[in-house]
């Protein structure tokens, strides 16, 4: 199973895994996943998530691997997925204004029947949002990152052509920020 291989490789990136994360990882792995997973997210909402790897129930969430990491670990993880033969589905952002953070979400999926969707998240401060670009590894990320820059104002470090894609070329606003006033 590619899922286990990739999980193994990504976990190696976190040499000192957070104990809280470990607990969450351990539980859905044992037997009755659906029952556990249904109760879990409702209880611990509103709490900012720790960095780490979580296995998700595909039937409930639509993806299998859910990784949150620091922007510095992003490229190493993307290289792992690239080598494992994943393709890039999309890059997008989420504005967590209460926590004063912007989240960048990367979706990766596979062409073969070993279905596995991996979601990589990384957070960056709202005041100066900056994440390294992955367009050198996946050229397809170029457009997605430009779009995310349009909507959230996140700077993708090293992007060769970070100009507005969907918004007008002189746009200086970011409509998907929660404090955006038209």
């Amino acid at each position: 199973m590619i899922k286990d291989t990739v999980l193994q490789l990504i976990r190696e990136l976190f040499p000192d895994p957070d104990p809280v994360v470990e607990e969450i990882v351990a539980e859905p792995a044992e037997g009755d996943e659906a029952e556990d997973a249904k109760k879990k997210p409702a209880k611990k909402k509103e709490k900012p998530r720790e960095n780490g790897v979580i296995e998700r129930d595909h039937a409930q969430y639509g993806y299998d691997i859910d990784v949150q990491l620091a922007p510095g670990e992003l490229l190493a993880t993307v290289v792992i997925l690239d080598k494992a033969g994943f393709f890039l589905e999309s890059v997008t952002g989420v504005d967590w204004i209460k926590e004063d953070q912007l989240e960048v979400v990367y979706d990766f999926s596979r062409y073969d029947f070993d279905t596995c969707r991996a979601v990589i998240r990384t957070r960056t401060p709202r005041a100066e949002p900056k994440v390294p670009t992955i367009s050198k590894i996946f050229p397809g990320a170029g457009w997605h990152e430009r779009e995310t820059h349009d909507f959230f104002g996140i700077k993708f470090d090293g992007h060769p052509h970070l100009v507005p894609l969907l918004l007008p070329e002189d746009a200086d606003f970011h409509p998907l920020l929660k404090d955006f006033k038209p």
């Binding site: 997210p41 409702a42 969430y61 979706d107």
Partner: peptide, 25 residues
Amino acid sequence: PPAGDYYQAVETARGSFGIRIVSDG
């Protein structure tokens, strides 16, 4: 929907269409 991050992919005439819903309840 309960708070969470949900993804659904479907095959449309043009390819894989994905929709992500981040719910805050």
